[in-house]
Write a protein that binds this DNA or RNA. Sequence first.
RNA 1: GCCCGGGUGGUGUAGCGGCCUAUCAUUGAGCCCUGUCGAGGCUCGGACUCGGGUUCAAAUCCCGACCUGGGCGCCA
Length: 436
Amino acid sequence: MKREMNLSNRRYTNELSAANSGERVCIAGWVHEKRDLGGVLFLIVRDFGGLAQVTLHRKSTDPELFERAKRVPRESVVAIEGTVKSENKAPSGYEIIPERMVVLNEASPKLPLDTTDKVSAELDTRLDARFMDLRRERTKHIFVIRSKVLKAIHDFFDERGFIEINTPKIVSAATEGGTALFPISYFEREAFLNQSPQLYKQILMASGFDRVYEIAPIFRAEEHDTTKHLNEATSMDIEVAFVTDREVMAILEELIAFVYARIAAYPGLSKLGIELEVPKVPFRRVTYDEAIELLSDSGEQIEWGEDLSASAEHALGRIMGEHYFITEWPLALKPFYAQPSEHRNDICNAFDLMHPRLELASGSQRVHSYELLRSQIESKGLSAESFEFYLDAFRYGMPPHAGWGLGIERLLMSMLGIENIREVVLFPRDRRRLVP
RNA sequence: GCCCGGGUGGUGUAGCGGCCUAUCAUUGAGCCCUGUCGAGGCUCGGACUCGGGUUCAAAUCCCGACCUGGGCGCCA
């Protein structure tokens, strides 16, 4: 009775229209909704392309097929062979009159969430059933956009002569400091998941590969539990030789504008209710000193040398309104590899790229002198011996260089106006979540 | 780590000492219905996170655990 159906020539629902009227087609997907009007039964079938209406008239349909269509539970996977019929009463101007239907997988009736969005679901519920959450229009588009953002970034750097690199994610104890690391067992030794590709991308500056980029996971063992932190995140990093912080800042703002322009053209954006405005470059730049003065005027007191608190960042975001850079940070606030300013010994050529309410990226011109780097490592209380693998690269011809790291998830959040970072990661890892 | 919220059918919620045999929506089962597009109408099914305590009486108050949302800190 159920002959095998050849799915290799199946059509996506968005490829079909009234123009295909009379064609015999095969579609496959999930039963999104059923509307049983007694004498007529509508099956709304969803695939990656969208929705299609399959219409069954009781009088003119094989009774066995009609009954099976009536009984198939929502979200079951079905393949349907039928004829396209132009019909202006149908939602997309056509419908499919089925001749055959194969249920490839029947769904259990108590669905973990509602894919039609009649009833909302909490984020935690959605993440537990992410496979089903992704069937929802909005969630789907977030990840299509994520993919397009990554593609845009690759295109941007490829066009500019950058080489894509892959640095190790299993590293020895020596790190740039700051964040806590996840220890792992590496045969008879202890190792860690990397917190950033920083040291390795810098080592490559001594290789002649003078424009590199990497998009890769980073791991932070901080026990933070906020809407903008993850324990596994995706970092977009670049490192460029023979330039200073000013040049890599220009690359960064051009990249942001480039990505926005690409995504602004994506039709799915309207499904998210978003209209993207491509930010104008160059972005505004404020020095750290100017920032604390601006904050002081608006009632936020920051001692010189202190980092900006969350409320200070928000206040500054309200003043600036758009993407902006904070430059000339106190040297003590930035990692050992930040190049001290040629004008003042207490500040460095480091910058943060801010979006109102969120830090997107940070970078700097790097120290390329072996002696200075070694002394800055030691002045941070770190052991220079454990950095020998890194320091070695600075002893045999290290050009001046600069770079930055950008949080992909934060870029997506800020672009799409999403409040919780977990929304833009398929399977987020946070303080509590290790599955799915 | 600190500070506030919250855990009620599959999902999302109302109720916050007795009117609870727990509300509403959606989902599910069944019936009616030939053009739905959040279909409609009728019937039925389905839940108080766990453990202690207070009380004549606990979904409701108290304590603990677990889970969870947000803010801060840390961090990017």
